[in-house]
Design a protein around this nucleic acid. Structure first.
Length: 496
RNA sequence: GCCCCCAUCGUCUAACGGUUAGGACGCCAGGCUUUCAAUCUGGUAACCCGGGUUCGACUCCCGGUGGGGGCACCA
């Protein structure tokens, strides 16, 4: 339609889940397309049918949808372009840019063995280019003799101006006459990619650094096919904390795992964008809209980056608190159900209350574990007391009596809300001649079992009258049942 | 073995020949607070090494070193 509008693509192979490196490549393509008002094409590179699967394709689409990376065209399947790939190979054959090779795998293996590094140092020796003339090759091919098609790499150097690296060049002498069509007539990656990118009129190829060494081969193919070159932008890789390529042993690598860990898509996108790209300003927290607005290829860094979970979680907390409870409800909901703390029906029924709980928890949460841990006292009928919290805040012999006084005080309340609860507690403290803290901390342990929680009056208000009374009664009972602490001495419960 | 890319605090990064080398995460200390978190204030910490070019190099050039990637009838 509009030839001046950039067209970019994300082209994952469906051999695994969408991992963070792939997600970032997709993100950069998407950000660029949205920034310039271009078109974002999604293409599934499924020419390796052995390793590809429909399930993995779906997993990748799910990952992109979760991140909010919507595509304008596709998903197209590379395998559907088989006819065109073959036709392009044929054109190469016709214009002399490629030739048929009858060398068998075994024969190549044998020649390879002579090389310094048997697996990598061998470069195809052009046996069939030198010994089989075009006419004879056509005849043997027509007779059905198995063969591959090899690209004839020309002399000289191949150079391009990379949008992130600047000028890069390779000596063609270092590139062997690579195969473009297998014995079975299917295309090899480099041909399929170039053929597809030409057909889809891709103007900017934004992909991982690991493709730099494929680029000269692809440029040679573009030229041999008489097509205009796209602009190339090679973005740096993402490494694990040890500086090695990110892999499973570093922890979660698939974006879906972060989804289940309670990371918000906004936070993931924000984090990934900042890994290898900088706006040039000091802004750290971005919405997707802000990223789209500020993104540019020029801001992409050349250095590979290390995945830092801490910063991701910090960003998650930032985004958690920029969102209203209604926004993050689905995420928390899934976590609570998965943890067995609540049922979908219950959360639906008590939605307004559920949102109050979320508002209480999100401030001090960075991931799903934090949320679930904090949510437990509001959902679970059982209460687990943290030993250290008990030792620290229930050590006073008068604790039981004080909590009982508090329970009685709360019982007089007509309305169950924060300010009233606070008033009662402070009044009781005064009557007992103690600081409010002497009631607040024991109360916190009684209600949550923990030494830390949100403001205790909010907690009590949200928790509700029935549960607070039950918890106080349970605490008093427990305290009265235990052997009395030696007065004045260090608590027997306290650890040395 | 050959080819290519890269190099600023522990980590993510800013700097585009002249700055007390800035910000963020983390960490430490303090303020606020009923605890924790959030937040605020302060602190800790970096130009890989060696040569050039230049009046002057984090910045430009060359060489090392280190890290990463690639070199298949995988993608």
């Amino acid at each position: 339609m509009n030839p001046s509008k950039p067209r970019v693509r994300f082209a994952p192979s469906p051999t695994g889940y969408l991992h963070v490196g792939g997600a970032r490549t997709a993100l950069f393509n998407w950000l660029y397309a949205r920034h310039v008002g271009g078109t974002f094409v999604l293409r599934i590179e499924d020419t390796d049918r052995e390793r590809s699967s429909a399930a993995m394709t779906q997993a990748i689409l799910d990952g992109m949808q979760w991140l909010g990376l919507d595509w304008d065209e596709g998903p197209l399947h590379q395998a559907d372009g088989l006819g065109r790939h073959r036709a392009d190979a044929l054109r190469l054959l016709e214009n002399g840019a490629a030739y048929r090779c009858f060398c068998t795998t075994e024969a190549l293996e044998q020649r390879r063995r002579g090389a310094a590094d048997p697996v990598h140092a061998f470069r195809y020796d052009r046996h069939c280019l030198r010994h089989v003339d075009a006419g004879a090759a056509e005849q043997r091919a027509r007779a059905g003799e198995p063969h591959t098609v090899r690209f004839r790499v020309p002399e000289g150097v191949t150079h391009w101006d990379d949008a992130v690296h600047g000028g890069i060049e390779f000596s063609n002498a270092d590139i062997e006459d690579f195969i473009v069509l297998r014995t079975d007539g299917t295309p090899i990656y480099n041909l399929a990619v170039v053929s597809d990118d030409i057909a889809m009129r891709i103007t900017d190829v934004i992909r991982g650094d690991d493709h730099i060494s494929n680029t000269p081969k692809q440029i040679l193919l573009y030229r041999a096919l008489g097509a205009a070159l796209p602009r190339f932008a090679h973005v740096p890789m993402i490494l694990g904390p040890d500086g090695k390529r990110l892999s499973k042993r570093h922890g979660a690598t698939a974006v879906g795992e972060y989804q289940h860990q309670g990371i918000l898509p906004d936070a993931m996108v924000n984090f990934l964008a900042l890994l290898g790209w900088s706006p040039g300003t000091e802004q750290e927290v971005f919405s997707e809209a802000e990223l789209v607005e500020q993104f540019s290829l020029e801001g992409i860094n050349r250095k590979s980056a290390i995945f830092d979970l801490r910063k991701l979680e910090w960003l998650n907390n930032q985004h958690l608190n920029r969102r209203g409870a209604a926004d993050i409800e689905p995420v928390v909901r899934r976590g609570l159900i998965a943890a067995g703390l609540a049922t979908a029906e219950q959360l639906d029924r008590e939605r307004a209350w559920f949102r109050r709980v979320i508002d209480l928890l999100k401030v001090r949460a960075r991931n799903m574990d934090d949320i679930v841990l904090q949510a437990r006292p509001y959902f679970d009928d059982e209460i687990a007391y943290d030993e250290e919290a008990v030792a620290r805040h229930w050590k006073d012999a008068a604790t039981a009596e004080r909590l009982e006084a508090l329970r009685a005080g709360f019982a007089t309340l007509d309305t169950w809300e924060e300010a009233a609860l606070e008033e009662v507690l402070r009044k009781r403290a005064e009557e007992l001649g103690i600081g409010a803290g002497k009631l607040i901390h024991p109360l916190r342990v009684a209600l949550t079992g923990m030494a830390v929680s949100p403001g205790i009056f909010e907690v009590a208000a949200v928790m509700g009258r029935a549960r607070v009374e039950a918890r106080l009664a349970a605490a008093v009972a427990r305290l009265r049942a235990r052997p009395g602490p030696s007065p004045g001495g260090p608590s027997a419960l306290r650890r040395a």
